[in-house]
Write a protein that binds this DNA or RNA. Structure first.
Lengths: 222, 222
DNA sequence: TAGATTGTTAATCGATTAACAATC
DNA sequence: TAGATTGTTAATCGATTAACAATC
């Protein structure tokens, strides 16, 4: 299937679309668990409160998953989206920073369900080294690079203060790590072959604060 | 300042702009801490890797903060954006769900710096009730509504599994809570006067997974 | 005054929605 | 076949970028 010389596979999908895939995946998983076999873009649109048009456009970025007159097969579509998101394969991850947040993420079981395997944990604090988090014990920072290479780690989760995050990211850039899930409140500069996804909790809280204020002011005016 | 009958104050700011404000705020705070007095949109654009045009457009949504030929005063702009985000005022919050994530958030000091005051914590598990998290002890769920009303709580942080989240959100909807910071992996249906900000960690992880896969496939092709 | 840089309008780009022919 | 619903093109909308006059 060729479009202007660029095959379907190579066309770049916008991050706006990618950002919606996990939500589709979640709703389809729920429908599947309820035993629903088929769903139309219209039905899904009412459930998810987005337009049916958007749903069809989004899915068609990856080729036709549906069938005219029928709709989409829930099970099939669910699996396809999972495959697109890459969660049909396993990802091995380590957590750098064994503080409260790092330990909370290490203890969170649901990531495993999606193929994310918790393999190691690191900290520089001698107090924390050796501690056990769900069967994984905390290692000293010196072992970081060797551990990554020996165990073929895919993802490093950064749960350390911003001061340390930049230098740790530099160390990671010299390994074969493929991605950083960054909870530190700083923008990381890494080579283009390392994918970065930021979770800036205080940014999220500020947006909430803005919306609280905006709503209050709207009310005052009316 | 009237534009087509709608005053500046009333014009709706797009969430795209709001989403960028915390990042501006962070960079301006760093410049301020470094003692930098003025910054031009050009300089800020190089630092933040966005266009100078976007920066000027974004700021002008809220009125003119700069001066031709000079640029922007860092301290002033920093304070103005803080004010716009509503973090010049205090927000009292409670955490519902005293599991690993809830406790981690409760222990995180930096929210306090931005005026978010940790006031209470709730859980249904008798094992957890009474436990102390940074001076706040965990209360039983029965006390939720009375505590919110008595202490004028603004924000409820939801760190419970999705099964419980929907029913707790229903209870919250009957209180005077103003916002929910939702870490449960489910979409909440609440009245329009309650602001909701979702932090769906597994969605974030799936996006990362997609980008890992996409990069790998790009490499294969070339 | 001359130079710099904003505020703002106009042009472009991309994303969303609407419409409908294709087809199951 | 008739009805339903997709896949896809066209229209609209909104967001980003470019350009430049206003002005410090």
């Amino acid at each position: 299937m060729i479009l202007g010389g660029i095959s379907l596979e190579e066309r770049e999908i916008s991050q706006a679309v990618i950002g919606r895939l996990p939500r589709y995946f979640r709703y389809l998983g729920e429908l599947r668990d309820e035993g629903v076999e088929r769903v139309s873009s219209q039905e899904l649109s009412e459930l998810m409160k987005v337009t049916a048009s958007q749903i069809r456009q989004d899915f068609n970025n990856f080729g036709g998953f549906g069938q005219q007159g029928y709709g989409y097969n829930v099970e099939y579509l669910y699996n396809e989206i999972g495959r697109i998101l890459g969660i049909d394969r396993q990802h091995k991850f380590i957590i750098i920073g064994a503080g409260n947040l790092g330990r909370a993420l290490g203890n969170y079981m649901n990531f495993e369900r999606r193929g994310f395997i918790f393999c190691g944990m690191f900290d520089q604090d001698p107090e924390l080294i050796g501690r056990d988090v769900r069967g994984v014990h905390v290692r000293p920072m010196e072992e970081l690079e060797s551990f990554i290479e020996k165990n073929n780690i895919d993802i490093a989760v950064l749960t350390i203060p911003k001061a340390g995050a930049v230098s740790v990211a530099k160390r990671l850039a010299k390994t074969h790590i493929r991605a950083i899930w960054n909870f530190a409140h700083v923008d990381l500069n890494v080579p283009e072959w390392i994918q970065v996804e930021n979770v800036h909790l205080s940014d999220s809280l500020m947006k909430l604060s803005y919306n609280i204020k905006r709503y209050a002011e709207e009310q005052e005016r009316s």
